[in-house]
Lab assay of single mutants.
Amino acid sequence: MFYPNSPQTSPQLTQIPYGQQYAMMQRQIQQPYHPFATTEPQARLYPYHYQGPIQQEQGGFITQQSTAASPQYVQMRVTPVDQSIMSGYPNQTANGSSSSSFNYNIHPQQQQQQQQQQQQLRHHAMPVGSVPLQDDRYRKQLIVNYLAPDVTSTDLHELFSRFGELDGARIIYDKQTNMSKGYGFVYFCHAEDAKEAVERMSGYEFHGKWLKVGYSTNPLNIVPSNSSPYVHAGSRGAAG
């Protein structure tokens, strides 16, 4: 039997160049792979992502010199942007860049009308829970959420009447099932009393439920100042 490094198959040491006398086997001759043993700084910083320098080929596509990437890492192929796409944008300079302001050559009167329309939209648009300043009635009506099913309009009136005089209180019921929808409205005579009720009743436990109280901004629920107070009856038909 002959071994790869046996004296019968191995040459004389004098015939082997210096430095390879003890590297006779194939696994010894093959050098191990060192990912950080390279002179390129990109490979030292990113050993798993770097795959060699990027070269520009004919046709405008950018390719990489090395083989496919590892399945664990996804390499994105980048193509140059066609400058003709950006030619339609206004205020574009000769080098292809555009300024931040756009001039669509709008007539001054049209621009003024658009600004007025935007101001009107901001004036009428009102986020949930906010209180408008032009109508004091919005500051007097509250919406009470997360009410228990057994709470009546009379219970709601008695709960909030300790903060001040009320114009009314009612629970909203479903017309088909005649069941409470879980929320109601309270109408105060003074805005200061309503503000105190919002601050003190939010998070209050009532009939096993934690109440959420806020201003009601729905104009359909506003009680006119010259109208008669609501009837605080315990029956659902009268309260709904």
Rank of each mutant, 00 (worst) to 15 (best):
F2V: 01
Y3K: 08
Y3L: 10
Y3A: 06
N5K: 02
N5P: 04
S6M: 12
S6G: 12
S6D: 04
T9P: 09
P11K: 00
P11Q: 09
P11T: 03
L13V: 02
L13D: 03
L13I: 02
T14Q: 01
I16R: 02
I16T: 02
P17M: 02
Y18A: 10
G19Y: 12
G19Q: 08
Y22P: 01
Y22R: 03
Y22V: 04
Y22M: 02
A23C: 06
A23N: 02
M24T: 02
M25W: 10
M25E: 14
Q26E: 14
I29D: 14
Q31G: 05
P32S: 09
P32Q: 09
Y33Q: 03
H34Q: 15
H34F: 15
P35A: 02
F36C: 14
F36P: 02
F36N: 00
F36S: 12
T39G: 02
T39A: 12
T39D: 04
P41N: 10
P41V: 14
Q42K: 14
Q42N: 13
Q42W: 12
Q42F: 12
A43G: 04
R44M: 14
R44Y: 04
L45H: 02
L45E: 04
Y46L: 03
Y46F: 12
Y48Q: 05
Q51G: 01
Q51K: 06
G52S: 12
I54P: 00
I54L: 06
I54Y: 11
I54T: 05
Q55L: 09
Q56L: 13
E57D: 15
Q58R: 03
G59W: 14
F61W: 04
F61R: 04
F61M: 00
F61L: 06
I62K: 14
I62L: 04
I62G: 04
I62Q: 01
I62V: 12
T63V: 09
Q64I: 14
Q64M: 06
S66M: 01
T67N: 07
T67A: 11
T67K: 09
T67V: 10
A69G: 12
P71Q: 04
Q72N: 01
Q72V: 09
V74E: 05
Q75N: 14
M76T: 02
M76F: 07
R77C: 14
R77S: 14
T79W: 15
P80H: 08
P80Q: 01
P80F: 15
D82K: 13
D82H: 06
D82M: 09
D82R: 07
Q83M: 15
S84L: 07
I85Q: 14
I85M: 01
M86E: 00
M86L: 08
S87T: 07
S87K: 05
G88K: 14
Y89H: 07
Y89P: 12
N91S: 08
N91W: 11
Q92F: 14
Q92E: 15
Q92V: 11
T93W: 15
A94W: 06
N95E: 02
N95C: 11
S97W: 08
S97C: 09
S99L: 13
S99Q: 06
S100G: 05
S100F: 15
S100I: 15
F102E: 13
F102L: 11
N103V: 00
N103L: 03
N103Q: 03
Y104R: 11
N105R: 10
N105W: 00
N105G: 14
N105H: 10
I106M: 06
I106D: 13
H107T: 08
H107F: 07
P108H: 00
P108G: 02
Q109F: 14
Q110Y: 00
Q112A: 06
Q114M: 07
Q115F: 11
Q115H: 13
Q116F: 01
Q117C: 09
Q119Y: 08
Q120K: 07
Q120N: 00
L121I: 01
L121N: 11
R122F: 13
R122M: 15
R122L: 13
H123D: 06
A125N: 02
M126R: 02
P127S: 13
P127L: 12
P127G: 06
V128L: 06
V128M: 15
G129L: 03
S130G: 14
S130V: 09
S130E: 13
S130F: 14
S130W: 00
V131D: 03
V131M: 08
L133T: 10
Q134V: 01
Q134K: 04
D135P: 02
R137H: 01
R137D: 00
R137L: 07
Y138G: 08
Y138S: 13
K140N: 15
K140T: 13
K140G: 01
L142M: 00
I143N: 13
V144Y: 15
V144T: 05
V144I: 04
N145A: 10
N145F: 03
N145P: 03
Y146F: 10
Y146Q: 09
A148N: 08
P149W: 09
P149F: 00
P149S: 04
P149R: 05
P149T: 03
V151E: 13
T152A: 03
S153Q: 02
T154P: 05
T154W: 09
H157N: 12
H157T: 12
H157E: 00
H157C: 12
H157S: 06
L159M: 11
L159Q: 14
F160L: 09
F160Q: 00
S161R: 12
S161K: 03
S161P: 04
R162L: 10
R162Q: 07
R162S: 07
G164Y: 07
E165F: 09
E165G: 09
L166A: 04
D167Y: 07
A169L: 01
R170A: 10
R170G: 01
I171G: 13
I172L: 04
Y173P: 06
Y173H: 05
D174F: 06
K175L: 08
Q176H: 13
T177S: 04
T177V: 06
N178W: 15
N178M: 10
M179P: 05
M179E: 14
M179K: 09
G182C: 10
Y183C: 00
Y183T: 07
Y183P: 07
Y183M: 00
G184C: 09
G184N: 12
G184L: 10
G184F: 01
F185Q: 14
F185V: 02
V186H: 07
Y187A: 06
F188T: 13
F188E: 15
C189P: 02
C189T: 04
A191D: 11
A191R: 02
E192T: 09
E192M: 05
D193Y: 08
D193I: 12
A194E: 05
K195W: 05
A197Q: 15
A197M: 05
A197Y: 11
V198N: 05
V198G: 05
E199L: 13
E199A: 05
R200K: 03
R200H: 03
R200T: 10
R200M: 14
R200D: 11
M201D: 06
M201T: 05
S202G: 12
S202T: 11
G203H: 12
Y204W: 00
E205V: 02
E205D: 10
E205A: 10
E205F: 15
G208N: 14
K209N: 09
K209E: 06
V213E: 00
Y215A: 00
Y215D: 09
S216T: 02
S216G: 05
T217Y: 09
P219Q: 03
L220P: 03
L220E: 06
I222L: 11
I222R: 10
V223D: 02
P224W: 14
S225A: 02
N226A: 10
S227P: 06
S227Q: 04
S228Q: 06
S228D: 03
S228Y: 12
P229E: 09
P229D: 13
P229F: 04
P229L: 12
Y230K: 09
Y230T: 07
Y230P: 00
H232C: 12
H232I: 11
H232M: 10
A233G: 11
A233I: 01
G234D: 07
S235P: 06
S235Q: 14
S235D: 10
R236G: 07
R236F: 02
A238E: 04
A238R: 00
A238V: 13
A239I: 11
A239D: 12
A239F: 11
A239R: 03
